[in-house]
């Protein structure tokens, strides 16, 4: 099976997962004792207005048709209206998503780099590897919120180097992408860029910490196994040094399991960002979601769940595709 064909089949299964996800979200929403029509029309609406709202939402039809109606609205980007903010959920998500995206992407990159360094150093024999293993275990077992508070005490209260929270709205541009790092680069605004980075450092670091350790541990053990194989012995017998052999043969062969765990970890980060956003007053989807949960704002919750679900599926797809790219045995026929 060729590469394209395999990717096509992954995309198809990805769409299938999304349909199941939206169905589950809709089903759960309908089971709850809350009437979206009344939410839309308002508490004091007349029976006629209520019926109109019901028709508008497609709630006057059999369940499956209702679902397809809902799916149709989703495809048009209509996620309903939030009772808390009284805005369209999609526009709320448009406001909050970039902040979360920026945090998770930066933290994800940090976790990958950290995991790579920890994994490669840890794979070699010697005291440095021992130290790295110790740090990995310690880092992975430290609770996120404790580390966050500790870092805040040191870098905000005592040293005063970094801000306590927020994204640094005062200076920053938020066009064209909403991702401040990129927006400020586009506008060549050095001061705003520095402010953005200062605000990002702590939350991204805390969010990246435990995933970096997890990726590092998996990469370390898989790299150790790879470095004990005959093809690595062959490469060493041809005069390659340890770093050269790791680079040419070790990493690519050891990367598979590390990629799988990285995919899981980045997905978990999306969920984990809820706590981090609260700790650092980060104006992102996590804060929006926790407000929505507190106010039983069903449309908002469903909207965020669908966006996060879509992100999970996308990450899984990216990881699968990378696996096919690094291992020729998965794509080229025998």
């Amino acid at each position: 099976m060729g590469l394209l064909k395999q990717i096509a089949s992954r995309v198809a299964s990805m769409l299938g997962v999304l349909v199941v996800l939206t169905f589950a979200v809709y089903f759960i929403q309908r089971q709850l004792p809350s009437d979206p029509a009344r939410v839309l029309a308002g508490r004091t609406a007349s029976p006629e207005a209520l019926a109109a709202a019901r028709e508008q939402l497609g709630l006057d039809k059999p369940f499956l048709l209702e679902y397809f109606h809902y799916l149709g609205r989703l495809l048009h980007g209509d996620l309903g209206i939030s009772v808390t903010s009284r805005n369209e959920v999609s526009s709320d998500i448009g406001t909050y998503l970039p902040a979360t995206l920026e945090l998770v992407v930066v933290a994800g990159v940090l976790a990958l780099i950290g995991g790579l360094i920890l994994g490669v150093i840890g794979a070699r024999d010697g005291w440095l590897a021992g130290a790295v293993r110790f740090v990995s275990v310690a880092g992975a077992s430290a609770p996120t919120f404790l580390v966050a508070i500790l870092l805040l005490l040191v870098f905000y209260r005592d040293l005063g180097w970094l801000p306590a929270g927020g994204r640094g709205d005062a200076l920053a541009a938020s066009e064209p992408t909403g991702l401040r790092l990129i927006d400020n680069l586009v506008h060549l605004d050095g001061a705003a860029l520095a402010d953005t980075v200062n605000h990002l450092v702590l939350p991204a670091l805390v969010l990246a910490l435990s995933p970096a350790m997890a990726i590092g541990r998996v990469l370390r053990s898989s790299l150790r196994a790879t470095m004990a194989t005959d093809f690595v012995r062959s490469a060493s017998a041809k005069g390659g040094s340890w770093p050269a052999v790791v680079w040419r043969h070790g990493l690519r062969n050891a990367l598979g399991p590390a990629l799988s765990i990285a995919g899981v970890q980045v997905s978990v980060m999306l969920g984990g960002s809820v706590i981090i956003e609260m700790l650092f007053s980060w104006p992102g989807l996590g804060n929006y979601l926790s407000d929505a949960i507190a106010n039983s704002d069903l449309s908002a919750i469903a909207g965020v769940v669908i966006v996060l679900g879509f992100a999970y599926v996308l990450i899984t797809f990216v990881v699968d595709t990378l696996q096919i790219l690094i291992d020729p045995r998965l794509r080229e026929p025998v």
């Binding site: 194989t229 005959d230 093809f231 012995r233 040419r248 690519r252 020729p328």
Partner: peptide, 8 residues
């Protein structure tokens, strides 16, 4: 089977 790097 194992003395050649499968990804090269």
């Amino acid at each position: 089977l194992t003395s050649l790097d499968p990804t090269m």
